[in-house]
């Protein structure tokens, strides 16, 4: 079984082998890609910044991460502990997502990075540059053209398709953390499917505010089993999580990886008489006119004037081009 093989519609990449295959690895180990080949192994001098391995991480580390990813895909929504490495960027700035992307990327991939929906926010620029330098992969701002998309806080508006991977940066992977801070206890709650407390929180919201007062990082139940934190995406994006692409979630500091395989049931928690509503600002985009996208509110002068524009910059630009 290989991760590339999981991405339907995309042929398995050759020549992206396990450099320095350890002889003591037992047969039960999962092998991820085509056999060892010299071209892309080890220190790749053809890429800028070639003092480091392809996509920065050494092959052994990538293999460890791929194992965690496969386990995550096999148990949708379950948080798999992994030995997160110290990355050359701060914890909390996407080290989990970067490690997951590094483990997924092949030289043929087309990589897109967004932060807050936009390709040109500083941290997105920084992460994209990191992979341009260490992996030499092609990068793109076009959602439809990307094979791997790393994101912070948004799901692109353009529906994703089979063969694409969406990698989320996750700050706190544990949906129960702010109800119960202890890891030992929350892991037990997941194991025993003891989720009453989660609904108590939603009950309290309604009792106090008349509705569920969670606007982002809105908890979901995956395939009827695990309650999962979708990372701090706005709840507007929650319904998109039932998609054709693979969704991978990486939390570097908290050392967890989890996943949603394609076409998996993802239900936002709610009550029958207070159903989940995916909310957004009641406006149209001032640039492309879209009425069905998530919007940024921009303050345009010091008199408090404001306008609303798509947070997904690629989606907005594509629509504007089409209209022009």
């Amino acid at each position: 079984m290989s991760l590339a093989g999981l991405r339907q519609g995309k042929p398995e990449h050759a020549g992206h082998g396990e450099a320095g295959e350890q002889p003591h690895e037992v047969a039960a180990d999962i092998h991820f890609a085509a056999p060892f080949s010299k071209e892309n192994a080890g220190m790749d001098e053809s890429v800028p910044g070639g003092a480091y391995n392809f996509a920065y991480l050494d092959e052994e580390t990538k293999r460890m991460i791929r194992r965690a990813i496969l386990k995550g895909i096999a148990i949708p929504g379950y948080q798999v502990p992994f030995a997160s490495r110290e990355m050359p960027m701060p914890y909390g700035w996407g080290t989990g997502g970067v490690q997951v992307s590094a483990a997924c990327l092949t030289p043929d991939d087309s990589f897109k990075v967004i932060d807050q929906g936009a390709d040109d926010t500083t941290n997105a620029v920084s992460i994209r540059k990191f992979f341009e330098r260490t992996a030499g992969v092609e990068t793109t701002e076009r959602t439809a053209e990307a094979t791997v998309i790393q994101t912070r806080h948004r799901i692109p508006e353009t529906p994703l398709t089979e063969g694409q991977i969406l990698v989320y940066q996750v700050p706190i992977p544990e949906p129960l953390r702010f109800l119960e801070p202890r890891e030992t206890e929350t892991r037990r709650m997941h194991a025993l499917e003891d989720y009453g407390l989660m609904h108590v929180k939603l009950y309290e919201d309604i009792a106090r505010h008349g509705e569920i007062a969670t606007a982002y990082a809105y908890p979901v139940k995956v395939e009827g089993r695990y309650v999962m934190d979708p990372s701090p995406i706005p709840k507007f994006d929650n319904p998109k999580m039932e998609m054709a692409a693979i969704q991978l979630f990486g939390a570097g500091r908290e050392q967890r990886i989890y996943a949603i395989p394609p076409y998996t049931r993802v239900v936002s928690l709610d009550f029958e008489d207070h159903p989940f509503v995916a909310g957004k600002a009641p406006h149209d985009c001032a640039l492309c006119g879209a009425s069905d996208t998530y919007l940024d509110e921009i303050i345009t002068d010091d008199a408090g004037s404001r306008m609303y524009v798509c947070s997904d910059t690629d989606h907005c630009a594509t629509r504007q081009e089409a209209a022009a």
């Binding site: 009453g196 609904h199 108590v200 009950y203 309290e204 009792a207 009550f271 029958e272 008489d273």
Partner: peptide, 21 residues
């Protein structure tokens, strides 16, 4: 830190009650 109603409702929700009213 949970309201009286939430305290009483917890066991109901733990076994699957999903109707707030």
């Amino acid at each position: 830190s949970v309201s009286a109603g939430g305290n009483v409702g917890e066991r109901l929700m733990a076994v699957g009650a999903r109707h707030y009213g």
